[in-house]
Write a protein that binds this DNA or RNA. Structure first.
Lengths: 213, 213
DNA sequence: GGACTCTAATTTGCATACAAAAGATCGGTA
DNA sequence: TACCGATCTTTTGTATGCAAATTAGAGTCC
């Protein structure tokens, strides 16, 4: 084990994101410390980090809880995600390398095949790497930090399980169009496609019932 | 003193922002602990918070240093600031209360007088409260967190000392136009004016020498 | 003279111990 | 029975001590 505090951060963060610790769950320091076999000191540092990143709320003398998101929070988060992801796409368009473009094209094909065969795990993996490349190509550490804060919640829910086949095909089409926009080194195009992409994702997540909002 | 960790955070943050700890300065834990009369434990928690917020960099087993910003960092930060502040203005336009609007108008007048009399301290104070109201009216905790991360650096430099009289008058004019846009509850107008406002600020900070870039 | 190595000193990372605050439990009173 | 208060328990906040890692420096060899 490298650093205990780092380990604690990773473990708790992962547990929150994959739903092992549901929203509202109490995170006792001793409890976590014993579970990880370390002392409370590094646990506290990990919880402070998670607090700043918005994953946990901690009240003085009362301990930490997993943040629970209201409906308004979710809307707010998606608005920010739309803003930041499309901005990242625009920046990436004028900075992305040919190597990264090649990899993105591979991922796009992989994902199309995964959609065809219904392999949800693989879809998620391809999607994650695809978007990861774009964010890195935006080459702004601060932007990446902000995006992480805003992507975390969707991660919890974005299992692709509620995507219909049509939704998935549209998603693949967006990826394809993004690759073209990047090849053309066209920031405005990339930004616009990315906006559509995230808006579509929000609509899927919001559920069909709210289509008319 | 309420909580030692909170106190340490406030003290160190303020010292960084007002320049007492210049970029690159080493922040030893024992040194800070003795200076504040507390132990290293709360100091460490404060440093972790500052790390996530981007104000300090900490390397494993090597301690913390005040972040030093490259020229590219500064550009990157201003791009994000433009994005986020104008977004906040748009949100605020449809949410701001009449009371807040009234206070903003007072501040606008105050600031105009301060510009006339050359009171730089007062200009800065009015400006800070004016923009604070807008950010609060945007009513997005996450957005506020992000803006703080992006406004911190400008805070270090934005002393208004390098503003010419013309720059200051333009700034006041922007504030005046913002009040009108908010009164009209016009998000697009508010967003656009805010974008101009921040772009102008960047140009002042960048220095006249780079006008042709 | 310069580079390398081994050692000593400083500093961070973590664990443990203690103090203080919040929460729970039990008893008493109306 | 319902409500209030005091004590006890649990949990957080902080201090201190120790181990590991990094850095600084002296001495040595080429």
């Amino acid at each position: 084990m490298a650093l205990a505090a780092e380990k604690a951060y990773e473990v708790v963060r992962t547990a929150i994101l994959d739903g092992s610790y549901p929203p509202g769950e109490r995170l006792g320091e001793v409890e976590l410390a014993e579970a990880l076999g370390i002392s409370r000191t590094p646990i506290r540092e990990a919880l402070r980090r998670l607090e700043v990143e918005g994953l946990v709320e901690v009240l003085p003398h009362r301990g930490a809880r997993v943040t629970s998101w209201s409906h308004e929070d979710l809307d707010e988060i998606y608005e920010l995600r739309i803003l930041l992801e499309s901005f990242a796409a625009a920046r990436a368009a004028s900075r992305i390398s040919d190597g990264e473009l090649g990899r993105m094209d591979e991922l796009r094909q992989d994902m199309a095949r995964a959609v065809h065969s219904g392999d949800v795990e693989r879809i998620a993996a391809c999607n994650a790497e695809f978007h990861g490349i774009i964010r890195r190509a935006a080459s702004s550490t601060r932007l990446v930090t902000m995006l992480n804060a805003v992507i975390q919640l969707p991660l919890v829910l974005q299992t692709f399980h509620r995507y219909t086949h049509e939704d998935l095909q549209r998603s693949v089409a967006h990826h394809s169009e993004l690759v073209h926009a990047f090849r053309a080194r066209d920031p405005a195009w990339a930004e616009s496609v990315m906006r559509s992409h995230v808006l579509a994702a929000r609509r899927v997540l919001a559920g069909r019932s709210r289509d008319e909002e």
